[in-house]
Structure formats: C-alpha cells, structure tokens
C-alpha cells in the first residue's frame, strides 16, 4: 500500500488530463450557452465552427513555421490564434448575414433556427474538409513537456511519474484568462449588459434603444473567438481532425445542459463534470488501486468500467439523467 504513488498515478492519468479536457469543453460549452441565451437556439454548427477556426489557425501556423517564426518553447499556434479568431469571426458574420438574419427578420420560431443551424453544420463540415482534408493534422511545436514522467521520478524518487504537457498547462491558463475576461465583459461593460438585457427581454431591449442587430453581431464575434480558442487548445492537446470536432458536439452540449443552458457558470461546471466523468469511467484503475489498496485486495483485472471507445456513452447517459431529473441543469439555466 502506497498512497503517495497512488495519488501521483491518479494525477498523471486522471486529474491532469481531465482538467485540460474539462477546460476545453467548458470553452466550447460557453459558446453554445451564449448562443442559446442570447440568440435563443441550440447551435448545432458549433463543433464545426470550432473546426473552422482551428483550421484557419493551423494554416497560419504552418505558414509561420515555414517563414521561421516561432514562440520558442510555446507553440507557434498561439501566435496564429488571433488570425484564426478573425477568420472565424468573418465566417460567422457572413453566415449570419446570409442565413440567420433572414429568419430573424421573419421572427421565425427558435426551433426553425435549430434546424437551420444543422444545415449550416453540414456546409461547414464540407467546407473544412474541402480546404484542409479529412485527415489528422498535427501542428503543435515548441517544448512538449513542462515536466516529463522520468524527470518527476528522478526528482521525487517515487515509483510513479507525473507528466504535464505544455499544452495542458497552456489550456488551463488560457481558459482561466478567457473566462475571467468574458465574465468581466458580460457583467461590467455597457455592451455586455446590453447583451444580457437582450437575452432577458428582446422587446424591452428594443424599447430601451438597444440595437438588436448590434447585440447579435457581438454575440457571434464572442462565440467565434471562444470556439476558436477551444478548438485550437483541443487540437494542440490532442490532434486536429474535422470528424473529431463534429463529434465534440455531444460532450459540449452535454456540458452546457448539465450546467444549465444559458448560464455561463453552469457551462464551466458542466464542462468539468463531463470531462471528469468521461475520464474516470474510461480509465483502467488497476494501477491506482494497486497502490492504494493493501496487497491482498489489489485487483487482478483492469478495473475499467467502459472501454474508451464508448466514451460518448458517458456524456449521453449524464445528459439523459439530467434531463430526466433536473432539466434546468445544476445552475438553473433557462431550459424549463
């Protein structure tokens, strides 16, 4: 029995990856929740919006790499990120102008916008594959680890190692900064407050002289920036593949709904809940339990509840449980 080793192994295989993945989901879910809260529909094109922003970032990263521009130990993609955001903002504003605005002028029921977003999803899906191809792309460079498992073992003399990837640390730091900035914007600035006012009561916002088109424009811009950040961080941490991003839609929606659609804090909490559930349920606990339990109780099998191939089932089950027993989500969102 060796609790210290158990904790290190737990951190290495569960805590650190889940925190990084949770931050990525939280950023994605924030985008979904903002569109739901302000534009009043579930945007099924969100995963592909993330893919588009990431794709632009990757293309700019490759160009920078070929031009010899780099950030030293940090990934070059960080330099390319603002360009990706701009590209994504342009895409969403054009989509809004060409597609969504028509329905807004018709005062179309929100459910019609949901279906429209599905159409947009398919188009974006095709667009991204057409430009960058359907394959896996890697674009992470710079220092790969902040601390490797071997260094950690040497430093501490423990049997288990703890590795922290640069991208994981970067993900958490960026997520914290972005979320802090978003909350400050929504609660303290005039524009942010007008977005909350529009979310609360469209007609009264109009009667107060708030320009609805302005609010919609700012919403798309913020969502584009959030989606790009989330997509790039996910891509750096794992890899970029258009289909994976499309699949991310499920855990992201699960996160947003678990936290309570329309509630930004809920989206963050939901992101972490989904990430931790997914990782803990698909992790083989043999090693950790072997350290933590007395030898006589040490498990023989892998103690893996679900194969990683079934990780989406976890989001699905959580989503079902929440919709059955607490449809407003943990933080009392607006889905009542």
């Amino acid at each position: 029995m060796d609790l210290l080793n158990a904790i290190v192994a737990l951190s290495n295989f569960v805590l650190v990856p889940a925190i990084a993945y949770g931050s990525q989901l939280a950023l994605g879910a924030l985008g979904v929740t903002l569109i739901y809260g302000i534009l009043r529909f579930s945007n099924f094109a969100h995963g592909d919006t993330m893919a588009f922003g990431t794709m632009v970032t990757i293309l700019v990263t490759w160009w920078m790499q070929s031009a010899g521009i780099s950030l030293g130990p940090l990934p070059t993609a960080l330099l390319a990120l603002p360009f990706g955001m701009l590209g994504c903002i342009a895409l969403l504003l054009v989509t809004d102008r060409l597609v969504y605005r028509f329905y807004r002028e018709q005062k179309a029921k929100p459910v019609i916008l949901v279906i429209v977003s599905m159409g947009v999803m398919f188009i974006l899906n095709g667009l991204v594959r057409f430009i960058i191809g359907p394959d896996d792309q890697r674009f992470a460079d710079g220092e790969r680890f902040i601390i490797t498992a071997r260094d950690f073992k040497q430093m501490t003399g423990l049997e288990e190692g703890l590795a922290i990837k640069t991208t994981q640390a970067l993900t958490v730091v960026t997520a914290v900064l972005v979320v802090a900035l978003l909350f400050w914007f929504l609660n303290r600035t005039r524009t942010g407050k007008s977005m909350r006012a529009y979310s609360d009561n469209e007609d009264l916002a109009l009667l107060s002289g708030i320009n609805p088109e302005r609010v919609v424009m700012y919403t798309w811009m913020i969502v584009a920036a959030l989606a790009t950040v989330a997509g790039v961080l996910y891509g750096l941490d794992k890899s970029f593949k258009p289909f994976t991003y499309f699949q991310l839609l499920l855990p992201i929606f699960a996160a947003a709904i678990v936290g309570g659609l329309g509630s930004p804090i809920g989206a963050i909490a939901g992101g972490f809940i989904i990430a931790f559930s997914e990782v803990t349920i698909t992790y083989a606990w043999k090693k950790v339990l072997g350290h933590a339990l007395p030898e006589s109780l040490a498990p023989d099998g892998l103690v893996q509840l679900l194969s990683t191939d079934y990780k989406f089932a976890v989001s699905f089950v959580i989503l079902l449980i929440v919709l059955l027993f607490r449809p407003t989500g943990l933080f009392k969102g607006k889905s009542v």
Binding site: A108, K109, P110, I112, V114, D203
Partner: peptide, 26 residues
C-alpha cells in the same frame, strides 16, 4: 400565414429558449 411562425408545437426547452422572445415585428 407565415410558415416561419409555426413551430409544430415544439415545447423542448433544451434546444430552444422561449423566454423573452421578441414580438415587435421587424
């Protein structure tokens, strides 16, 4: 008469938000 105003009885608040929808016509 506007087909976009027909949501076929959708009440699913997990995909659409009805709270605060504007009624003042554009």
């Amino acid at each position: 008469q506007n087909p976009y105003h027909d949501d076929r009885g959708n009440k699913d608040a997990s995909i659409t938000k009805r709270h605060g929808v504007g009624e003042i016509p554009t």
